[in-house]
């Protein structure tokens, strides 16, 4: 397991943001990069690789990876639906969105569809309270969710997955 040359250069650029000797600061950004490059989650092997790359003890990586909610510690589907359920989203019907995804895909929060395409995760406030209900999908926010909108997102994902196969 290793990053491509391009990604290794990116790691160097990240480390250059900090004063000499403070390369541990690169840990969060490099873990983001590793998760993106190595299948959407952080296996022990991935974390050990990041530790060796940044010259840290593996435990320093594990304790960070387990603290922050954006690092996935087990495999996730190709498309990760992270639905916000905190106060303002609840007021605007997030419970209904979570239930609709269950009805549609048969997955509860924390589960992945058997075809490996979708994982549902409930999350706490993502800072989109005025555009509720919402979910995060990869790098983007999907806002003002309705059942129709969720439906078309699911269709869009299925279409993209089919096109890539």
């Amino acid at each position: 397991m290793t990053f491509s040359d391009d990604k290794l250069k990116e790691v160097e650029r990240i480390i250059a943001r900090y004063p000499a000797g403070k390369h541990k600061s690169a840990l969060l950004p490099v873990l983001h990069l590793a998760q993106q490059e190595f299948g959407g989650w952080l296996s022990s092997d991935t974390m050990d690789y990041v530790a060796s790359l940044l010259k840290l003890e593996p435990i320093e990586v594990y304790e960070v990876a387990t603290f922050y909610s954006m690092y996935n510690l087990k495999p996730v589907g190709k498309y990760l639906f992270e639905v916000c359920q905190t106060g303002p989203c609840m007021l605007n019907g997030s419970d209904g969105i979570i239930k609709y995804i269950f009805d549609k895909l048969g997955i509860k929060p924390g589960e992945t569809t058997t075809d490996g395409l979708f994982t549902l995760k409930t999350v706490e406030c993502l800072g989109a309270c005025g555009y509720a209900p919402m979910m995060q999908m990869g790098k983007t926010f999907r806002e003002y969710l309705t059942e129709e909108k969720v439906n078309s997102i699911i269709e869009e994902c299925r279409k993209n997955a089919a096109a890539n196969n």
Binding site: R17, K22, K24, S25, A26, L27, L28, P29, L31, H32, E60, E63, V64, F67, Y68, S69, M70, Y71, V123, E124, C125
Partner: peptide, 27 residues
Amino acid sequence: IHIQRGAGAYICGEETALLESLEGKRG
């Protein structure tokens, strides 16, 4: 000016937790 991305932790909005996180540690 440099940008550092957090990784999902409300507590990192507390200024000393933020600094810990920016140093590559738990918040």
